[in-house]
Design a protein around this nucleic acid. Structure first.
Lengths: 160, 160
DNA sequence: AAAAATAAGTCAGTTTTGTTGACAGAATTT
DNA sequence: AAATTCTGTCAACAAAACTGACTTATTTTT
């Protein structure tokens, strides 16, 4: 009978009249499981390279937007410069990414994948792409457009 | 002219004839951004509690499935017992989760959120739920069913 | 031209969240 | 009685994030 503390929480009754049942636990959970399994796809390949998921994200975005600067990448990943530095250095030292001094602003470092970097990005994306294709096929016609719009709408408005 | 290594990568030409253009970089990226912003929603609340995202996941699932065992939770989160232990202990010590010896198998510990735990789970889910509702509304009628099916299909088949 | 601001890199230390491996106690199953 | 299972814990380690401070090179502003 003991052990049930009285309700003194700072979270209860925020005055919005929001009820437990109004909360969309279902899609919250579906997103968690979908993303959990989606991100585990490339793990086998990453282990072979000795890289982790942080390296994956860097190679992916540099491959997708060749010539992006370090600042661009920081803004995309929403991590700190020091966090990025370690991972980026390893990718440069291993020959997957190379840097070119900005032609207009020489303080900038434009980032490019090498051919190995492109191959790695493709290899990592391949199982994820297959998972998406299978899921869309099972979901039915028109799913692709709806899913694209939904995911885009889930993103913060550009004014972050 | 130098610095372009020859193509000796283990990732090139896997014999499937898969072309770069067949890879769905677009949805891969939309998923990344959607999840990045979705998971950042509860950060302000977590900081107040002194908890992290790992605590969030534990409170969420215990709240959603009251009476689940430690083994159930490990299977859901796909982390190790030792990783869970630290986070779970903190939640128990802080009074957000409590354990009850299994009525049939007394080795088991059934997990329940306290009232504070329920309030925390709701508070954390609330901004995420609102984001989902807004995104679905913008996407159009019928989006909810399509998105649900897609996300469910993205998950590994139960035979993990 | 000098001063201020910006882009990138680095040094040092810390935190969160995950990992392995080994072992122990209690309870259940064989 | 022996083996297995569920949970918890100790210890060490690793990945990936963080803060804060500082440097260098370059560009922009005054």
């Amino acid at each position: 009978m003991a052990g049930q503390p009285k309700n003194t929480s700072q979270y209860v009754s925020d005055g919005t009249g929001e009820d437990e049942d109004t909360i969309d636990f279902e899609i919250i959970e579906l997103l968690f499981f979908a993303y959990r399994d989606f991100t585990s796809d490339p793990d086998a390949i990453l282990e072979k390279s000795g890289f982790g998921r942080a390296h994956h994200r860097v190679v992916h975005f540099v491959n997708r937007e060749p010539g992006m600067t370090v600042a661009d990448l920081l803004d995309t990943l929403k991590i700190t410069k020091q966090s990025l530095a370690r991972v980026l250095k390893q990718l440069i030292d291993s020959g997957y990414i190379r840097q070119v001094t900005g032609p207009e602003d020489r303080r900038q470092r434009m980032l490019y994948t090498t051919e190995e970097g492109q191959a790695l990005a493709r290899a990592l994306a391949e199982p994820q792409s297959r998972r998406i294709a299978d899921a869309l096929a099972k979901t039915g016609p028109g799913a692709r457009e709806t899913v694209k719009r939904f995911l885009a709408n889930m993103r913060n408005s550009s004014a972050d």
